[in-house]
Write a protein that binds this DNA or RNA. Sequence first.
RNA 1: GCGCCCGUAGCUCAGCUGGAUAGAGCGACUGACUACGAAUCAGUAGGUCGGGAGUUCGAAUCUCUCCGGGCGCACCA
Length: 660
Amino acid sequence: MVLEMKKRLEAHLRGVLQAKYEIQPESIPMETPPDLRMGELATPIAFELARKLRKAPKMIAQEIVAALGSLEGFASFEVAGAGYINARLDRAAGVRMAASGESLAVTASGLHSLVEHTSINPNKAAHIGHLRNAILGDTFVRLLRAAGQKVDVQNYIDNTGVQVADVVVGFLHVEGKSAGDVRALLEELKSKGERIDFYCWDLYAKTSQWYTSGTDTENEARKKLRYATLHEIEHGGNETAEIAEVISTVVLRRHLETMLRLGIEYDFLPRESEILHLKFWEAAFEQLKKSGVLYFENEGKNKGCWVMTRPGAETADGVTDEDAKVIVRSNGTVTYVGKDIAYHLWKFGLLGRDFGYKPFFKYPGHACWISAEKGEEPHPHFGGAQAIYNVIDARQSDPQANVIQALRGMGHTEQADRYTHFSYEMVALTPRCAVELGYEVSPEDLNRPYIEVSGRKGFGVKADDLIDKLIAATRAEVDARQTGRDEAERQRIAEQIAIGALRYFMLKYTRNSVIAFDFKDALSFEGETGPYIQYAVVRIRNIFRKGETSPDAVLAEFAKLAELGTYLSGAENEDIWALWLRAGRRTMVLEQCIATSEPAHLAKHAFQLAQEFNNFYHKHHILTEEDPARKTFLLATAAVALRELVEALAWLGIESPEAM
RNA sequence: GCGCCCGUAGCUCAGCUGGAUAGAGCGACUGACUACGAAUCAGUAGGUCGGGAGUUCGAAUCUCUCCGGGCGCACCA
């Protein structure tokens, strides 16, 4: 509703500016006045025009207000302060629009987007840092879909990298297991219902330590073993590669299960092994050479390599660019960034090659596919997107910038412009939390605000452990309150609240803020949390239950009310109008979230709406209201707040429980 | 050395493309359950927006500089 009104006012203002001054500003600044008494929308446009028109802002504002006349949906326009133009909505019209939900229909943009998130190395359990990635990515997918985009969700799997090689070394050489032993162990863990990714978590840390814990000659041999193992895995077609395949696949399956607990699903899992074996790089190499993005270096420290100029680097003819990024090493092998360029050409449908596809994981609604050398027919098609979003932490902004630079250099400027590195800061542990978990913390770390999580050191909080802990805590609360409900129902509610708490916790911070993780904050269910919002939903549902009516019935009745003005004016009703206004902002917030790639705005919106509802709830007793028309109005207010809260929560991937 | 991010209330964070009197949550202190469930609400205290300079009618927001913290800058993935 607010978005609709804002657009209406903008268009009207443009008409006035054109007719009166023959000015067509690029954008019209529109904001919310600091106080509702000043109106609902405001623009400081007169300040900007003051210089151009050589007139006082206040004078300009007065002229514009006089020319604005009347506009449907608006009650009045006025000049305020030194030259603000404040607009008051026709409150009754605004309320009717918000109640009808008409403005919720978002015009489908038709854009085909690809969001890649999660991308955990399949060699250990997921930890809280991975949770932030997956929750951010999944939420953004929901937002894009809400805005009418067609979105493919990908989870890139580096199944041939050094991290997988490390656990393979761990199994074969630290634990001295044979290939058969490894298979037997996997079977055994599976039959006991134990988590293989947890086992690997410890083994990975142990192996990382093993590389440096021997004598110098031993360590030297271990390093060699590490790289020999990596190369065997990359090459494929040998027993080491087979073990890597088996382990990475079971760990990947575990990651999908963990993420499914949070309602996170994927469409396609492209793997590094297929990128290698289907020769994506070779196809990209030809294009890169042809376009001149890559050049062969004959001088300097990068002599014998194929390199590319870094973004923003200044180069001069005849001067060797020592800072250039190496893409092909002097021994002929390709670097990570090179493979990533090839992969991203595929994402945009520019590579001229495709993966094979096999079904891998079944969700209630759909299947998740995985890449394969020889796929199955028929299969859905992935890649060839118009816009892509890579949810990758901020530390990888340099390599991401390199890939974008390469695309741009190859002439794919439109694609480069629609390539978003959806970056976010890491989740670290507070020193207190690290101590609580029993880790040894150095005195200097103890004085830091936070300590970085490290899979290599086995230092961190595992995702499943945190989820288990959250569910146990919410279950205790539910058990204390919902004594009349059976076991299964209480468990279901506890899970909904726990996931709500976790997802909200990861979404309330803006992306570039480091989250210093602490159990006290993460396990909190009061104040600015997911459960606070869910609680508002439950309260509203209880009102309808006790009132023996439904939101639909109430809204139908509400549509028949002839006069709304008396309920929306006067100091005692100001907060009710504020609640309607907030409820009517959802699509505007959605637009803002997508424009800034920032889901936190929606999290904040949902909280504020819940807060305003709770405020309203305490001030106006609905079911005992004696005036039937006013009661209908109050019930309609609750119905719209409910609809908006449930929908906003759904976009955040948070369920709305019936009771809690 | 170069690049990116951060510094706002005791703590954790918001602050929309520069805009009107800087906001939440937590914590502290006062109050409100015979009400539509208190996982809630009302109130009080608490801020030189890291320091300085500049641009502007107007700066927490933009520029420069300094201070403090974090993260990147491989022929590793």
